[in-house]
Amino acid sequence: MTAPPSSRRAILAGLLALPAAGILALPAPALAQGTWPARPVRIVVPFTPGGSTDIIARALAADLQAEFGQPFVVENRGGAGGTIGTEAVAHAAPDGYTLLLGHIGTLAVNPSLYRRLSFDTVESFAPITLAAVVPNVMVVNPSRVAAGGVAELIALARQRPRSLSYGSGGNGSAAHIAMAAFNLATDTVMEHVPYRGTAPMMNDLIGGTIDLTFTGGPPALPPVRAGLLRALGVSSLHRLPAAPDIPTIAEQGAPGFEATQWYGLLAPANTPRPIVNRLNAASARALRGEALRARLEAEGAEAAPNTPEQFRDFILSERSRWSEVVRRADLRLE
C-alpha cells in the first residue's frame, strides 16, 4: 500500500533533516578537530628565555610548525619556580591551541615543594610525549672555586659549610632539586641563591656573583667551551657524547649519583584525543629525525619520545621519587 502524499512529504523532510541534525549534535571540539590547527599554537615555557626548557621548546616548535603549516609560538611565562606558566596552561581552553613544555621541576618536584597549587600536574593535563632527557652539568666559576673535580669540591664544602653558593633558575627548578640531592648524597651544605630563570643565574655565575650551579647541557656547555666556566662533572651515569671529557659525578666520590632533567609536551586536560595523537605522532617524528636529534645531542640532550600513557606513568613515578628528596632536604615552600 502506497503512503499518502502527506506522509511521504513528512518522511522526506525527516530524512533531509538527518545530516544537519547529526552535525549539530556533535560537540564543538569534534567539529574543530578536522581543521586543527587553523591558527597559531602557543607553547608556554614556564621560565625566562635562555634555559634548557626554552632551548628545547624552540627546537621542537620549529619542527611542529613545518609539520602543521601553522606558527608554533614559544611564550615565556616565568615565575614561582615555573608554577605561573604551568597554571596558565592548566586553566587554558582544551582546544589544542595552548601547550606546555613542562619539565622535572614543574611536573614532578613542585607538587611536593609547594603546599598549595591550583592544579594537579597529572589530572590537570593531557600528557602528549616526553621530549628529551638532559643530564645536569656541575659548573663552577674558576676564579671563585679552585676545585678541579667533584671530590675536591666535596672536600671544600665539608671544610667550610655554607661557604659555597649555588644558583638556580628558582625554587623547585631542576638546578635546585639536583643540588639538594647532591648535598644529601655527599653530606655537604651549600647556600642556595634562586633566580628568576636560568639565563640571569648563568650571567651572575660567569660574572662571579655566585660559585657554582647544576644545570642542563644546553646552557652549561657553551660557556665551558669558551673557557668562562669549569665543568666538574655530569649527573648521568654515563658521560655525555657531546662532552666525553667531563667525568660523571658517580665516578668522583658520589657512587650511584644520578639527577637528570627531563622535558615533555602537555596540553590542558580534556583536549580532544585526536589532537593529542596528532601532536604525539608529529613530535615523535621530529624527535627521531636526524636533524633535531643531532641538534639536541650537540647540546647535551637526548631525544626520548614516548606515548601519552607512558609519559603519564613517568610523571607519576618521578613525583614519588623527588617527593622523598624534598622531604629529606626540608625544601617545602608556601
Results as ranks from 00 to 15, higher is better:
Gly207His: 03
Leu237Gly: 15
Gly105Leu: 03
Ala3Tyr: 12
Leu287Asn: 11
Thr86Gln: 09
Ala92Val: 10
Ser320Phe: 09
Thr213Leu: 02
Ser165Asn: 04
Ile210Ala: 07
Tyr195Gly: 02
Pro244Arg: 05
Pro27Ile: 05
Pro71Arg: 04
Leu265Cys: 10
Pro308Asn: 04
Tyr195Gln: 01
Ala131Glu: 06
Gly96Lys: 07
Arg293Phe: 06
Ala286Ile: 14
Ala178Thr: 15
Arg160Asp: 14
Val89Lys: 00
Gly197Lys: 00
Glu334Ala: 13
Pro223Gln: 00
Val134Leu: 07
Ala61Gln: 05
Leu232Glu: 09
Gly169Asp: 00
His238Phe: 09
Glu290Ile: 12
Pro218Met: 05
Val74Arg: 06
Pro135Phe: 02
Thr48Ala: 15
Glu87Phe: 05
Pro27Ala: 09
Phe314His: 14
Phe47Ile: 05
Ala174Lys: 00
Asp245Lys: 03
Arg278Gly: 11
Val224Ser: 04
Arg230Asp: 11
Ser323Gln: 14
Ile177Val: 15
Glu75Ala: 11
Ala267Ser: 11
Asn306Ile: 08
Thr86Tyr: 08
Arg8Trp: 12
Thr215Val: 15
Leu26Cys: 10
Gly96His: 05
Ser235Leu: 03
Gln65Leu: 02
Ser283Asp: 08
Arg39Phe: 05
Ala147Lys: 01
Ala157Leu: 04
Ala90Tyr: 03
Leu265Glu: 08
Leu316Ser: 12
Gly79Pro: 14
His176Cys: 03
Gly96Thr: 04
Gly170Gln: 01
Gly85Ala: 11
Phe257Leu: 11
Met190Lys: 00
Ala180Val: 00
His91Thr: 15
Gly78Val: 03
Leu292Val: 14
Val45Trp: 01
Leu237Glu: 07
Ala25Asn: 08
Ala146Ser: 15
Ala303Tyr: 10
Phe47Leu: 08
Glu334Ser: 12
Thr48Ser: 14
Phe314Tyr: 15
Leu26Asp: 03
Thr213Cys: 13
Glu302Val: 13
Thr198Cys: 11
Val44Phe: 00
Ile128Ser: 07
Phe125Arg: 01
Leu184Gln: 12
Pro194Lys: 02
Arg158Glu: 11
Ser235Ile: 10
Ala146Arg: 15
Gln261Trp: 06
Glu75Met: 08
Ala59Glu: 13
Arg116Trp: 12
Val224Arg: 03
Ala151Glu: 13
Ile43Ser: 02
Leu292Met: 11
Leu292Arg: 07
Glu251Ile: 11
Val276Cys: 10
Ala174Arg: 02
Asn306Ala: 12
Gly102Met: 01
Ser165Gly: 00
Thr307Pro: 12
Val134Glu: 02
Pro94Cys: 03
His192Ser: 05
Arg327Gly: 08
Arg278Met: 10
Ile315Trp: 05
Asp313Lys: 09
Arg39Pro: 00
Leu60Pro: 10
Trp322Leu: 14
Gly170Ile: 03
Phe257Tyr: 15
Leu164Ile: 15
Arg42Ser: 15
